[in-house]
């Protein structure tokens, strides 16, 4: 997927305290943008496209799409 590098911002956040390290999100990520060790998880920012498939698949709502951040960004871009 094409990413406009300058304006692009990571809007996906994983809450480590909620996460169960089950790997469901890793399996659906089209970009191979999630790294999962035994009990450590992180988004590989350079690969992620904010597509949100991981958010919808997480059984315990440990991943969020940051809407507030998106709103802030939209304002900036409107100017």
């Amino acid at each position: 997927m094409h990413k406009d590098k300058e304006n692009w911002k990571l809007l996906i956040e994983i809450n480590q305290d909620k996460c169960d390290f089950c790997g469901c999100c890793v399996g659906v990520c089209p970009e191979d943008a999630i790294e999962l060790k035994e009990a450590q998880i992180g988004i590989i920012e350079s690969e992620c496209t904010n597509c949100s498939k991981c958010v919808w698949s997480c059984p315990v709502e440990a991943i969020k799409f940051n809407k507030d951040e998106l709103k802030k960004q939209t304002v900036v871009m409107d100017i």
Binding site: G23, C24, G27, S57, P59
Partner: peptide, 26 residues
């Protein structure tokens, strides 16, 4: 390496599951 498989991807195999076909379980 299970549902979270990434190893195959590194060899160019398409292992990503369509999110509609992934059963999200608890």
């Amino acid at each position: 390496d299970g549902v979270e498989s990434r190893v195959g991807r590194w060899a160019g195999l398409k292992t990503c599951v369509d999110f509609r076909e992934m059963e999200s379980c608890y």
